[in-house]
Simulated assay, not measured.
Amino acid sequence: MTDFGTNLVAMVTPMEPGGALSEPGLTRLVEHLLATGCDGIVVGGTTGESPTLTDAESAGLVGAVAAQAGNRARVIAGVGTHDTATSIRRAREAEAAGADALLLVCPYYSRPTQDGVLAHCLAVADATELPVMLYDVPARTGVAMAPSTLIELAGHPRIRAVKDAKGDLFEAMTVLSRTSLAYYCGIDGLNLPYLACGAAGLVSVVANVAADRTAELIRAVRRGDLGSARAINDSLLPLTDTLMRSGTGAANAKAALVELGIIPSASVRLPLVEAKTAVPA
């Protein structure tokens, strides 16, 4: 867990109207996340609109967040793409920019076999000295990481965690029982059951606006206070429903952050479109 933290946020990428990156928005957002209890910041992941970021923008964001966070939080750089060579290049650039760890999504669009998934992940893990969190999200990639693949990848000394957005709790418990991989819930609606099943922490979109409450949820489960954990989870359900089930998480989270006065604009890059109404937080 020290590789990645426990209360991780899938950070949005603040942008100005028209799509340029917002440096003031980024600075205010990072301070907000640190102040509300994030000990891990995922930069350039799905919620950060990674497919629209250039290599230079991705590395620049990692460097800026790492410099600002210092030793207050781990910085995990999203480097996965559909192309192994590009993913390796982004991993090396993230390492040079100051990332503490990498988030590596299953390669998308090409729909590789499990042998291809395995070879891709091993190649990226071999490319730097950073610890790797695998990102299993078949709804976006079209390919799931099979349990046998995860178990084999766990043998690599730098592959140490999984962000699970698959939602199969039995499979997660099975892999947990057979490996030393740390599991992180990547579906905000399932944070409580994943923690109860032994997840090390969360990679949360909702934490952009409610990291204090996701931190409380983690603490309650860890001390075995499931009554309090359920109450905290219940308090988060309306926000989770609004952010994650009524449109695009990235756009909705930006709208909520504007409502809170954290970032100046809810702008996103196409093909995403800005949330039409402000999201209450």
Score class of each variant (00 low, 15 high):
Thr2Asp: 15
Thr2Val: 11
Thr2Lys: 14
Thr6Glu: 14
Asn7Asp: 02
Asn7Met: 03
Ala10Tyr: 06
Met11His: 06
Pro14Gln: 03
Pro14Ala: 02
Pro14Phe: 06
Met15Trp: 00
Pro17Lys: 09
Ser22Glu: 04
Thr27Trp: 01
Arg28Lys: 13
Leu29Met: 09
Leu29Pro: 10
Glu31His: 14
Glu31Ala: 15
Leu33Met: 13
Leu33Gln: 15
Leu34Arg: 07
Thr36His: 15
Thr36Gln: 14
Thr36Glu: 14
Gly40Ala: 05
Ile41Thr: 08
Ile41Cys: 02
Val43Lys: 10
Gly45Trp: 10
Gly48Tyr: 03
Gly48Met: 01
Glu49Ser: 03
Glu57Tyr: 03
Ala59Val: 12
Ala59His: 07
Leu61Ile: 09
Gly63Lys: 08
Ala66Pro: 02
Gly78Ser: 11
His82Cys: 13
His82Gln: 10
Asp83Phe: 01
Ala85Phe: 01
Thr86Ser: 12
Thr86Gly: 03
Ile88Val: 15
Arg89Gly: 07
Arg89Glu: 14
Ala91Cys: 10
Ala96Cys: 05
Tyr108Ala: 10
Tyr109Gly: 01
Ser110Met: 11
Val117Glu: 00
Ala119Trp: 00
Asp126Tyr: 08
Thr128Glu: 11
Thr128Phe: 05
Pro131Glu: 12
Val132Glu: 04
Leu134Met: 12
Asp136Asn: 15
Asp136Arg: 03
Pro138Asp: 08
Val143Trp: 02
Ala144Tyr: 04
Met145Ile: 12
Ala146Val: 00
Ala146Arg: 09
Pro147Trp: 01
Glu152Ser: 13
Glu152Gly: 04
Leu153Ala: 03
Leu153Asn: 10
Ala154Val: 00
Pro157Cys: 06
Pro157Ser: 14
Ala165Tyr: 08
Lys166Gly: 14
Lys166Phe: 10
Lys166Arg: 13
Arg178Asn: 03
Arg178Asp: 05
Ser180Met: 02
Ser180Cys: 00
Ile187Cys: 04
Pro193Gly: 05
Leu195Val: 03
Ala199Glu: 03
Gly201His: 11
Val205Gln: 10
Asn208Met: 08
Ala210Gly: 02
Ala210Ile: 01
Arg213Gln: 15
Thr214Asn: 00
Leu217Ala: 06
Gly224Tyr: 06
Gly224Lys: 07
Leu226Phe: 15
Gly227Cys: 03
Arg230Gln: 15
Ala231Cys: 04
Ala231Trp: 00
Asn233Lys: 00
Ser235Arg: 08
Leu237Asp: 04
Pro238Cys: 09
Thr240Gly: 13
Met244Asp: 08
Ser246Asn: 15
Thr248Tyr: 12
Val258Ser: 05
Glu259Ile: 01
Glu259Lys: 12
Ile263Ser: 10
Ser265Arg: 08
Ala266Ser: 15
Val268Met: 11
Arg269Ser: 06
Thr277Leu: 06
Ala278Gln: 12
Val279Lys: 12
